[in-house]
Simulated scan of single mutants.
Amino acid sequence: MARVRGVHADASDEVAQLYAAACPRLIGLLTVVGGSRADAEEVAQEAFVKLLQRWSTVREYDDPEMWLRTVAVRMLVSRHRRHRVARLALPRLAGPDLEHADPGGTDDLIDLASAIARLPIDQRAVLVLHHLVDRPVDEVARVLKVPVGTVKSRLARARAALAPHLVDSEQLS
């Protein structure tokens, strides 16, 4: 394995082991939260770079993977916010013809992944961390650095937005 400048061999071996164990799970989590595997892979790599830079401190934590997951989710949320601001600004900069353009129709029948992908990133993050990663509300609040009440309200909004898409199979018969 090639050595990383500024990182001792033992540290790079430890990070390599964490990478091998945690990276597939992290990419899966970020893909569900962000909706894009390519973005998830980029953010995961950026999170591991931050981990390398802070390994002497993070290695002492009880759960370095939790630190990594926290950093990665925050980075993904920030990335989505920047992209959203850019998308909203583009039509205004382009002129009135594009400002009222429909970005695409909505289907009556959509699967759960697609419905989750349509949620705002803040709601998506709490929903995935709480329901799919099975983290308690207080831990989700710590990870996202928001109050517990904010997590609860985002969960409620996310559930309400998903409710129409979660049709009971008996209703389909």
Rank of each mutant, 00 (worst) to 15 (best):
D138M: 02
E46K: 11
R54G: 04
A2R: 08
M1W: 12
L52K: 13
R59P: 06
H131P: 00
I116W: 04
L144E: 01
A72M: 05
G95H: 04
A89L: 14
L68F: 12
Q171G: 05
V167E: 13
H130I: 10
V151F: 07
D13E: 14
S153N: 04
M75A: 15
C23N: 11
E65I: 00
Q17A: 08
V167P: 05
V71P: 01
V148K: 05
G34H: 08
A113F: 01
S173Y: 15
D62P: 02
H131G: 08
A40H: 08
Y61I: 01
A89N: 12
A141T: 06
V49K: 03
Q53R: 13
V71W: 08
G149W: 03
V49H: 11
I27Q: 15
L119A: 06
Q123V: 00
Y61P: 01
G149C: 05
G104F: 01
S78M: 07
R92S: 14
V49W: 06
L119H: 04
A156E: 03
E14G: 06
D39E: 15
A101L: 12
S56E: 10
S56W: 11
R5K: 10
A11W: 02
A21V: 13
A113K: 00
E41A: 14
A38G: 11
A125N: 10
R142L: 05
L26K: 10
H100F: 10
A113T: 01
V85D: 10
V126N: 06
G6H: 04
A11T: 03
L119G: 05
D111Q: 07
A20Q: 10
H83T: 15
I116A: 03
L98K: 06
V15R: 07
K152W: 03
V137M: 10
V7L: 15
E60L: 07
V7M: 14
V4Y: 11
F48H: 04
V133R: 08
L29Q: 07
L98Y: 12
L98N: 07
S56G: 09
V151A: 04
V151C: 07
G35R: 02
R118G: 10
T150D: 03
D168V: 03
L144A: 07
Q123M: 12
A158H: 03
Q123E: 15
E170I: 05
A11P: 09
V77F: 03
H83A: 15
K50I: 00
R74S: 00
M1T: 11
R124Q: 01
V7K: 01
T70R: 15
S173N: 03
R135I: 01
D63E: 13
G104Y: 02
V77T: 03
R124H: 02
G105T: 04
G34P: 02
V49D: 09
K145Y: 01
M66P: 00
I27G: 12
E139R: 09
L119W: 10
A158L: 07
V85C: 07
D102G: 02
L162Q: 05
L129A: 10
L76S: 05
V49F: 14
D62S: 09
L68T: 09
W55H: 07
R37V: 11
L18Q: 13
L26T: 13
V167W: 01
Q45T: 15
V32A: 06
Q123L: 03
V73D: 05
R54S: 03
L29P: 01
P91Q: 13
R81E: 14
